[in-house]
Write a protein that binds this DNA or RNA. Sequence first.
DNA 1: CTGTTAGCGCGTTCAC
DNA 2: GTGAACGCGCTAACAG
Lengths: 336, 336
Amino acid sequence: MPVTIYDVAREAGVSMATVSRVVNGNPNVKPLTRKKVLAAIERLGYRPNAVARGLASKKTTTVGVIIPDISSLFFSELARGIEDIATMYKYNIILCNSDQRMEKELQLINTLLEKQVDGLLFMGAEIKEDHLQALTSTSVPTVLAATRDADNALPSVTIDHFQAGYDATQALIDRGHKRIAMITGPQSDPLSGLMRFEGYKKALIDAGIGLNEELVANGNFFYESGLTKTKEFLKLAEPPTAVFAANDEMAIGAIHAIQDSGLNVPADIEVIGHDNIRLVEMVRPRLTSVVQPMYDIGAVAMRLLTKYMNNENVEEHVVLLPHRIEYRESTRPEQA
Amino acid sequence: MPVTIYDVAREAGVSMATVSRVVNGNPNVKPLTRKKVLAAIERLGYRPNAVARGLASKKTTTVGVIIPDISSLFFSELARGIEDIATMYKYNIILCNSDQRMEKELQLINTLLEKQVDGLLFMGAEIKEDHLQALTSTSVPTVLAATRDADNALPSVTIDHFQAGYDATQALIDRGHKRIAMITGPQSDPLSGLMRFEGYKKALIDAGIGLNEELVANGNFFYESGLTKTKEFLKLAEPPTAVFAANDEMAIGAIHAIQDSGLNVPADIEVIGHDNIRLVEMVRPRLTSVVQPMYDIGAVAMRLLTKYMNNENVEEHVVLLPHRIEYRESTRPEQA
DNA sequence: CTGTTAGCGCGTTCAC
DNA sequence: GTGAACGCGCTAACAG
């Protein structure tokens, strides 16, 4: 039923090899022949079968993308960066949600390899031994986006989360705060969870303030947890005068908890978030946040992957993208 | 290099057909033989080549998804619904962003058909003749999600946008409002843009209030436009006492415009949004909104597509999912 | 229950 | 420049 390369060959009065050459842009075809072939293709509405091509050429121009949750404000932005660059290099994306469940992640890696993807882009929190094994047991190149394995065995694109946590905290210290609370992410998450917290801790210690356990709460990256944890902070005998949340959703929850208790942000308590998702512009006061360039991370990761897929030379396997703080109204102008 | 079905056959001392049967769960295999084959598979680390399988079987267990923008809060939720159900039925998703540009949409349809997807899920605004032609020129089943073509030529899953607009407006009328403004979506969007507005108009007419042009502004579904358009409303000699925005982002922009001018929501002006994205819970006051079940639309659309792909009988090609209004603090409790 | 045999649609030598 | 022939790895009859 569907028209194949043979049909085109017959219609054009040439061999299928010639049709293949035309379709693939091989220059060794007489212009006149090329023209005849193209006409035949047009006439028959020929559409090359990418599966057959993939089998013959061992390339599918498809990359697998494993992402925790595409409906997340954070990851969907990343995915967009990935897809844009993929499109630019003529790749398509098979998108899979893992929900960060290891069993599912491993199974997805396997499924994607079965589908003969040319490359793999992996997002998630912790990279365990099992991941490494699954990912390195194949010759399919893999890049980690917004994650890193402890030994840098795999190429990755991230920001320096420790420094980001440090900088956010330092910004608050610079504003004269001594009681700076932090709502962390899950400590099982080595970068967004642990490293940001470590940065916070180090900044406090460097400033001679030191860590105060009662000002640290473990959140789960969701709005609700920012709200709840902050309410608890406010019940303290001496509540914090500033809050650093490990992501923006929780920071917004913090703002609302503060406002609900009748206090003002930033006059009474300053708040700073992390990631700079689009949401930060859509609250009052608008949220000061550490910019993690999600789109760029996705884009750079995908670009890096194309290099591996083309066997190009790569100088730096571990890419650290710059971060910075975007100041808005949830913090006061810096003290002189 | 990679181990094939032949290698497994040799290792297990059977024919490749038998290996194929074992891999595909064909029951016509003696238990002992099956065991030997599975052992060989395990020993060799055999991983079936889905591309070869696809070529031979003419099924790829992959569906193409064309979406305007995966980074949108609205569409990413839809995508999650799609992917979850796809996974449930053992399909993978090739995800493509169209940005609603027709040229790109048509090109994507073509690319996905080249990749021999078993089905197509299309999201976008307007379905033109060219779309219909591209989509119906193939035997690959297609389902529209959160969109519909004018003639219902294609299967689709949506809500009743006209009724949704009507209901939202009616809710405001029931609260005693006479000056109800609307920030619409682009009128080129037949459902979210036009139909919601038509519902609004009809409700006003039915109530004997009638349409007041100065209370209608065309937005673009972004926060910023909700903010801007509402500021203009507030400059009117007689500003509106209620605002209905065609989506939540714009509604939140409206709330902020109102608050920035020193007025209170809902005391001075009531606001109602549309879609009920996760954001509505993350603003103060929390936003009353028409619930459009994005996740369900995606899930139902994908489920519908699986039926077509399996040649199952489908009773209803045009699915309308129910909508309702979720009341929160941006509207006042209903008048008795 | 199992093996043999054709293709699936195309890329790719290798001759002409 | 162009064509013939082989093979990519697997499924699907068809025998037996």
